[in-house]
Amino acid sequence: MAAKSTLKNMALCLSAVCLICSAVVGGAYALTKEPIDEAAKAKTTASIARVLPAFTAEPELGSIELNGANYTYYNVPGTGVAIISATSGFGGILSLMVGIAEDGTIHNTTVLSHSETPGLGAKCTTDEHFIAQFQGFDPAVKSLAVKKDGGDVDAITASTITSRAYALAVSNAVAVFNQLKEGGLSNE
């Protein structure tokens, strides 16, 4: 039945199997690379479309460092900037995309990934009142902190920590936006 377990046989067999398997995996990688990139791009484009007003220009990818953290952003000339901003929520990282229009008001926000408690903090993706209050929010007039901390953001019931993290992420994104403005990004 099975081949003899001599050193030569074992080495041959293992190398042959490893070679074939690497070839298969390499082939699969080459074949799926394009669809994977496309899927990732489609997801980003969909998120940008959700947080910014309708646009036609191609979003430009960029990144900036502010207060020791790296932020990725997509600049849509003439429309606004979509900034990816992450903070730590209750259960782990809460990652948002924040769309800020040219005039500095927040157009919309969307959650990219989170690990908040189902039914409590996870409501930050579904609670309409909570999400709607950020639409058209003008950080120059109102303060991006939950009401408990003296700000103007209504927290989700029983999920102050998540709401706080959400508000902080948005306020970080605003800081990034201001930094970008100072850097003269809109003139590009």
């Binding site: 207060n67 020791g68 953290a69 790296n70 992450a86 903070t87 730590s88 782990g92 990282i93 990652s95």
Partner: peptide, 10 residues
Amino acid sequence: KEFALGGAAP
């Protein structure tokens, strides 16, 4: 995985 603890950046 990225980690973010105690308010630090991920």
